[in-house]
Simulated assay, not measured.
Amino acid sequence: MLLLLLIFLSRHCTCVYYQDWHRTRRPKLAVEGTLLPAVSQTVSAPNPNASEPSTSTFSSPRNTLSSTSGVVVAVNDAASSTPPPPTLPAAGADVTSSTGLSFDEEAKLVYGVVLSLRNMIKKISGRDEQFVNYRTSSYKLLLFETISGYKFTLLSDPFADSTSLRLALRGVYVGPFLEYVVRNPLVTMDSKTHGIDNEYFRSSVDRVMRGLPAFF
């Protein structure tokens, strides 16, 4: 089964957006205060003062974008961006599927790997050489970086087609990102205080990824 993990990192080395599909090993909730609001409710630290649930109306056609899939839409509202309390595992459930890392630690590791490999390649091969992907025995990481400094990072199965995935990342940038984030006056670009909480953007990203030939 194809695993897709999408993390957008801003120039401030912070995760501003997260969405995944078919992920089996879940990260732990982020430590309180280490993750920007509206990145993703299911990886944010629970807020004990929460009084209202999310009012998002986004629904996946295959119903995989649920509170257990790591994807919940956060709308541009302070009350609705408050994450729900963590769900306790059912009796007898398998609790060994966690990565063992909190989401903020996971995001920092991804950014550190991307930054280190990119700098190493530029120093060894020259400034014209670009880091676009690498592969291990268990996953493949692809990078699409914009001129403004945003890094679109995608983790997939190790034998997934790199060309189609890179095109999908570029498609997310030239399509949903420019349309619903860059040109949206309600979204604060280059923010150090808030993630990308645009519901239309999240649903559009979902459609792009589900349109991949290898997605199932």
Rank of each mutant, 00 (worst) to 15 (best):
L2A: 02
L2Q: 11
L3P: 00
L6A: 06
S10V: 02
S10Q: 09
H12D: 13
Y18L: 05
Y18A: 14
Q19L: 07
D20G: 15
H22M: 02
R25M: 06
R26Q: 13
P27I: 01
K28L: 15
L29Q: 10
A30K: 05
V31S: 12
E32M: 08
G33N: 05
T34Y: 03
V39Y: 01
Q41T: 03
T42P: 02
V43N: 00
A45T: 09
P48R: 08
P48H: 08
N49E: 15
P53K: 07
S54A: 15
S56R: 06
T57C: 05
P61S: 14
R62P: 02
T64Q: 10
L65H: 14
S67G: 00
S67T: 09
T68F: 07
G70A: 02
V71M: 05
V72K: 11
V73W: 05
N76Q: 09
N76K: 10
A79M: 02
S80T: 12
P83V: 08
P83D: 15
P85A: 14
P85H: 07
P89V: 11
A91I: 12
A91W: 03
D94S: 10
V95L: 05
V95H: 08
V95G: 02
S97I: 03
S98H: 11
T99Q: 11
T99A: 13
L101P: 03
F103I: 08
F103E: 06
F103D: 14
A107Q: 04
K108L: 15
L109E: 12
L109M: 07
G112D: 03
G112H: 05
V113T: 07
L115D: 13
L117T: 15
R118L: 01
N119P: 00
I121F: 04
F131W: 02
V132H: 00
N133Y: 00
R135D: 00
K140Y: 00
K140F: 00
L143F: 00
K151N: 12
L155D: 04
D157G: 15
A160I: 06
A160Y: 01
A160H: 03
D161W: 01
S164H: 07
R166E: 05
L169G: 09
Y173M: 07
L178S: 12
V181F: 04
V182P: 03
V182S: 04
V182T: 11
L186D: 15
T188L: 12
M189Q: 09
S191K: 11
K192V: 11
H194V: 14
D197G: 15
D197F: 03
Y200L: 09
Y200M: 10
F201P: 13
F201W: 02
S203W: 01
S203D: 09
S203M: 06
V205H: 04
V205E: 03
V205D: 04
V205M: 04
D206P: 03
R207M: 10
R207P: 00
G211F: 01
A214S: 09
F215D: 12
F215M: 14
F216Y: 11
